[in-house]
């Protein structure tokens, strides 16, 4: 059967069309699903970036409590891949689908820049990715925070997926754009089928955008779906 991936849309979502184009470029059918619609018959879901509900209260807080997110919870429980990008990552953390939370940057300003990321451990979203990738970030609330006792567990369970690194691939404080704990840029659930990442892979999915590294995230996700 033809693979079908859902791209969720809330009021204030953006880069949804970019994600769709990136998937289409890889030959995959992706449908935009408005949050009031029914999420059914999809092999995976992607929550794109943006500023859902104006980032009121906390980024992602309102969207995380919408009905469609219950369907996303069910998809995740069924083992289907769920990817949250930027605001999507914030929505996943606010939904408790991944541990920890993304909050105001250490320097409390919107940052938009290219970063280098080191792939950590094994994830269905990075199986085809190089060790070090170049992707853009664009956020104000991207500082990853997790209680210290949980941080140890995240490493033991292989849930840290990307870290901000310098040109040599070292997770230095200078390479940490937002003050994230342990330079963490992407985190997964215990079962690994849910990934919350602050960088934007869809903004690095065509040569003219400056990097093709983002495609590996989508390609890995597609490969994972085929393996199910």
């Amino acid at each position: 059967m033809l693979m079908k991936i859902a791209i969720l849309r809330f009021g204030g979502s953006n880069c949804d069309l970019d994600v769709q184009k990136a998937l289409n470029n890889l030959g995959v059918h992706a449908e935009l699903v408005w949050y009031k619609e029914v999420l059914e018959g999809f092999d995976g879901a992607i929550i794109p970036g943006g500023f859902s509900y104006g980032d009121y209260l906390r980024a992602g807080a309102i969207a995380a409590r919408t009905k469609i997110m219950q369907s996303v919870q069910e998809m995740a429980a069924d083992g289907k891949p769920v990817l949250g990008i930027c605001n999507g990552a914030q929505i996943l953390s606010e939904s408790n689908l991944v541990p920890g939370t993304f909050t105001l940057n250490q320097y409390p300003k919107f940052i938009c820049k290219w970063v280098k990321l080191l792939k950590i451990g094994r994830s269905p979203f990075t199986s085809l990715s190089s060790e070090v990738v170049k992707l853009p970030i664009a956020h104000k609330e991207g500082r990853y925070v997790v209680p210290p006792r949980l941080l140890k567990e995240l490493y033991e369970n292989d849930q840290v997926v990307f870290k901000y690194v310098d040109d040599k691939g070292c997770p230095t404080s200078a390479a940490n754009p937002n003050g994230s704990q342990d330079n963490i840029a992407a985190i997964s659930n215990l079962e690994k089928n849910v990934l919350a990442m602050m960088p934007h892979p869809e903004r690095a999915s065509e040569k003219r955008l400056g990097s093709l590294d983002g495609n590996a995230v989508f390609e890995s996700m597609i490969r994972y779906i085929k393996s199910l």
């Binding site: 209260l57 906390r58 807080a61 409590r65 606010e94 920890g100 939370t101 925070v145 997790v146 209680p147």
Partner: peptide, 9 residues
């Protein structure tokens, strides 16, 4: 517990 606060922070 359900919306106004995030128990992590």
């Amino acid at each position: 517990q359900r919306l106004l606060a995030n128990p992590i922070i």
